[in-house]
Design a protein around this nucleic acid. Structure first.
Lengths: 137, 137
DNA sequence: GTAAAACTTAAAGTTAACTTGATGTCAAGA
DNA sequence: TCTTGACATCAAGTTAACTTTAAGTTTTAC
């Protein structure tokens, strides 16, 4: 398998070198092997970077991603603790998706309605509601 | 209509007073009327706070929310510029929801599969992919 | 009438997630 | 050989979105 330097990984992944070094520093990525002080990578780094990006775009913090990536034991199946965390995160994802649905509805309604302001359009939103939002128009 | 002080709005909305003042300072909320220097609010503030919270949970930044709330003209329908922005935001919301679907799939697969690590499970994720993610297990 | 509670402003502090800058080393090409 | 470019570390700077603190004023409760 091919071995790359950090610049190659930057080109392949689009992730800046400073970010890759930062991830290593905070132990989100394992310490890379060094040759004359320079980091060497195999292609597996690309999967890790992709998972990190995916999780971030899904709204996970770095600390959460660390837990998700690190607390997996070396042998399947995942530990009970990991499972609890993952299931909790799944619930959060569902809630967040409902919030986004509500926001979509609000934007779409405002695009199509005769309300004079977004506030008027959305005044049916209940306190703290993330679902079941009803709009005035 | 009833008139409230900031402490009442805190109780009704759950939003801290410091946050409400901060929103006013950055002009996300209009300057509240003062009586002896103290802010007075009607219930309409609650809708605004709810919209702000909804939009934030949906992933909008404060600056974006400012644009969405402020660039609405006083007369319907919304300006062309607002519409362009709103439609762009709708696209972003859709993309983000796809990302979250992919993340959900990744978590669910790892919960149910025999993969030894999340990375192994997710190694089918393509570079920068937010949809069409295929998993190995 | 007085003390506590609620409010005010202004400035400084906090956290996450990086980025930038300074300084130095190593490797490859003309 | 010499210079350029890619890499290294370490410390400091950045941005968003608030929160905290300090110092002062007003309102409320007893």
């Amino acid at each position: 398998m091919q071995i790359w330097q950090i610049g190659d990984i930057v080109k392949k992944s689009g992730v800046p070198a400073s970010t890759i070094r930062y991830y290593e520093e905070i132990e989100l990525l394992p310490p890379a092997e060094r040759v004359n002080g320079r980091r060497r990578y195999s292609d597996t780094i690309l999967q890790k970077l992709n998972i990190i990006r995916l999780a971030q775009q899904a709204g996970f913090t770095i600390v959460e991603i660390q837990t998700l990536l690190h607390n997996l034991p070396a042998d399947a199946p995942p530990s009970a603790r990991w499972q609890v965390m993952a299931e909790q995160k799944l619930t959060e994802l569902d809630e967040r998706m409902q919030t986004m649905q509500a926001m979509k509805a609000l934007l779409e309604q405002t695009l199509n309605c005769e309300c004079e302001t977004l506030e008027a359009c959305g005044s049916g939103i209940e306190n703290g509601a993330t679902s079941g939002v009803t709009l005035n128009c």
